[in-house]
Design a protein around this nucleic acid. Structure first.
Lengths: 191, 191
DNA sequence: TTATATAGCTAATTATCATAGTTTTGAGGT
DNA sequence: ACCTCAAAACTATGATAATTAGCTATATAA
């Protein structure tokens, strides 16, 4: 019964590792305990429930993505910023599929911390859109389109939805190009 | 032990009802048995496994969506066809959230029947894009963008991702307008 | 009327998350 | 060096899930 020296942080790091390598749905208490070398009930000395752990992944996912995207869009604007945002998001999802999946969980189950982290990301995206002159309600509608198309593309790609042989990288660049083109047109509201 | 008169079709109809009203993740053998008035193991006289039932929902989902979208785009082209495709898809997802979720399951687990039904839908979408003059690889990239943005929007909407007060219908129309605009531009390849 | 295929049953297996209550241990104070 | 005690890990237990094995009753067709 030698102590394993566990700690909330150690448990969460293991959770991230499992979610990223085997998928968020494979993150179970049993697997977590196995990886950490303890029996399942021991984990409850450090965590409240598996759902809480998953919610923490949601928060961590948004924060890590925010961190990466902030760096990527720093100092650029317009099309370059849009590309930076898109590519950093797609790359994040490939590097951390488990964390990405956690950020896409239904909002209903989110904690305040997750909500706040997601809001911070939203603010960053809004800043990118300001480079296209979008403000007010138009900016909200535009950002919903941006979020939707990026999320949909990434989920489809990770879910094996793009089975045809055509290069998916080219498809993603097409998406960014189309978004850029459409945003430019919106820029000048129907005068 | 009076017989309940079950039948694969009856079971699948019940599965669709449960998935649509309580969510695909709430579709369990126990709930299915409860609804049908039998004990859980009895269901295995009609189904092979819960996964098979879910895959059948995937197939049925694609077929029903195909049916609706085919009607919607019949006789129209260009922007009208794009709108019809988009709106029929979004409405389908609202009417049948469980079937919609089933169509968005990871492709890896799909049966040939599901794959075939999804391919038929892809063909319909390709036909819509032909109205924009898209052919060959360009059409494939364009269709990936279309699928991604529609799927992302619908999943976000169903998942409660659009929390702000702005009208989501307007956002969806914005999406369609942006897609239309971008597709029109693509129409004339860089001459 | 009787035979038989089969629908539905009970019981059991395995895997999941979670809690209650017990034992052990290691760090800090003496 | 030696206690003390909070915390860490454990055993045991229970609830819910999917699934299988094997029994029994029943509807239908000969």
């Amino acid at each position: 019964m030698a102590r394993a020296g566990l700690d909330l942080d150690v448990v969460l790091q293991a959770a991230i590792m499992i979610a990223d390598s085997e998928g968020l749905e494979s993150l179970t208490i049993a697997k977590l305990a196995l990886v950490l070398g303890v029996k399942a009930p021991s984990l409850y000395n450090h965590i409240r429930s598996l759902d809480m752990v998953k919610d923490d992944l949601t928060t961590q996912g948004w924060l890590l993505l925010l961190d990466r995207s902030r760096d990527a869009v720093a100092g650029v604007a317009g099309r370059d910023a849009l590309d930076a945002l898109g590519h950093s998001q797609r790359q994040f999802a490939k590097d951390h599929p488990g964390l990405w999946a956690a950020t896409q969980l239904p909002v209903a189950g989110w904690s305040d911390a997750s909500q706040k982290a997601a809001d911070a990301y939203l603010a960053l995206a809004l800043a990118v859109l300001r480079g296209y002159g979008a403000t007010g309600d138009a900016a909200i509608h535009a950002i919903r389109v941006l979020r939707a198309s990026l999320r949909g593309f990434i989920d489809l790609e990770l879910g094996g939805g793009y089975g045809l042989p055509q290069d998916v990288d080219v498809s993603f660049c097409t998406l960014l190009k189309m978004l850029d083109a459409a945003l430019r047109l919106q820029e000048t509201p129907t005068l």
